[in-house]
Amino acid sequence: MNERQWQRLLHIGASIVPEVTGLDAEGQRRFRELVGGALAQRPRNMQRQFALFLGVLQWLPALRFGRRFDRLDAAQRDAVLRWLLDAPAMRLRNGFWGLRTLVFMGFYGQPQSWPAIGYRPSFDGNQHLHA
């Protein structure tokens, strides 16, 4: 993905996981590494489909709101994404599922995000059970 597509992904990602807006430079770098790594493993046609889906998402709202996704307010962005979640065409639902999955990976795949969500794994979990 080029820089413009990355910025678009981060912007859309903030509507999927609001905490993405709070990622500092290092957090954004880790986000890109996780998402980029996942995309790189996919077949080329799937990578192209994802880039295409990002483009569709950017311009689709123009049909209803007369503006691109990145020019919508929060409620309008939410409405567009909710429509995609339950879209009539399975391909669109699949596309949004893929987008959500990548954003979730980019954020929740970072161990740095775990303390805030109450996830504190331990190689000796039984010690906590027996305490």
Partner: peptide, 11 residues
């Protein structure tokens, strides 16, 4: 965390 997140149907 990631597996949990992707299995929740929403955003």
């Amino acid at each position: 965390p990631f597996t949990t997140a992707k299995n929740l149907i929403g955003f």
